[in-house]
Amino acid sequence: MGKTAISRRSLLASTVALALAGMAGPVHAEDFKMGLLVPGSVAEEGWNRIAYDALKRVEKELGAKISYVELPDNPAAFEKAFRDYASHGYQVVLGHGFQFQDAALTTAEDFPDTVFLVSSSYIHEGKVIGLNTDASQPFYLMGVIAAKMGKGAGLVGGMEIPPIAHAFEGFAKGARSVDPDFPVSTVYIGSFTDASAAKEASLSMISQGADFVVPNANAAGLGVIQAAQETGDRLGTFSVYSDYTDVAPKNILGTFIADYGQGIVRIVSGIKDGTIPQSNVDFGLADKDVIKFTFNDAAARSVPEDVRKYVEEVSARIAAGEIETRTK
């Protein structure tokens, strides 16, 4: 559990009165509370840390009272934590990951005054609202770079869930927009924390000819970066969600950062003022305050200027809706 977990607090219950369907009355800052559920530790750089930083921004910028819990990968624990927050009057609870979706839907039936947000989800059912960072868009750019500069790529995912599958679909589409025959292999290691398994999968792909290996596995993704670094400067990779450039400065060609905090503050601010999103929320390259992709000039094989220019043109077309990066 997090050090501010609700089980260690004595909290007063409060409610949000409904004003209209899809609308709630505004809540005074001193009464507004937001809880966070993370699958693991917020001390880890990467996925969980992004959510924690977002929560701290809600506290600072919106004056909210905040709390978080660190949970094992256990659906029963997810539902209990959601119920604990809702029963203590939290107006917003964020489950940080697709795996929280079912527990949010079940809990929401009993707590109509709480808005349940679910990261990496396309859900919109009542007050259960998915907040998805469309990683297929920056991954499409990575695929373009890999096909322009390499001979094959390996993708290492934590689990085969829709957000990761969509990201990898985007990579493959980007690569094959450059070279229809560009080989892309995919492995799911079944864990978001096992860096050793991710490293082993990466080394296997490298031995089979991949000269790009790319992670999407939360903390486990560090194993992919380490494999690239240990194999030599010829291997290319990308930082995903957090900047790991210091781990493999010669291998990381670019970094995809989702300023999830900015997106969360935007959405939660609206909820606090009484407006609940009427659809799921999908952040993409058009949201320049949220999605950022940058190049690493210090890489051994830094992305050439002509490729960078092409990638920027592709990025603009994606943002404009001219290129579909994944199956809807």
Rank of each mutant, 00 (worst) to 15 (best):
G2L: 06
K3A: 13
K3P: 09
I6F: 07
S7A: 09
R9N: 12
L11N: 10
A13N: 14
A13G: 13
A17R: 05
A21F: 14
G25Q: 12
V27E: 01
V27P: 12
V42Q: 03
G46L: 13
A51C: 12
L55I: 08
E59Y: 13
E59K: 15
K60W: 14
E61D: 15
A64Y: 05
P72I: 10
E79I: 14
E79W: 12
G89R: 06
Q91Y: 03
Q91V: 01
L94A: 05
G95T: 07
F100K: 02
A103T: 02
T106Q: 14
V118I: 15
V118S: 03
Y122I: 06
K127R: 15
I129T: 04
D134T: 04
L141P: 13
M142A: 13
G143F: 02
V144Q: 07
K148C: 00
K151M: 01
I164H: 06
H166V: 09
A167L: 07
E169C: 01
E169G: 04
G174E: 03
R176N: 04
S177D: 15
D179N: 08
V187C: 04
V187Q: 13
A201G: 00
D211Q: 00
V213R: 03
P215Y: 12
A227G: 06
A227Y: 00
R234H: 08
T245A: 13
P249W: 14
N251K: 02
G254A: 11
I257R: 13
G261C: 10
V265W: 05
R266Q: 14
D273P: 04
D273Q: 09
D273M: 09
I276V: 08
K288L: 03
K288I: 02
A298Q: 12
A300M: 04
D306F: 13
E313Q: 15
V314D: 02
S315P: 08
G321R: 03
K328P: 12
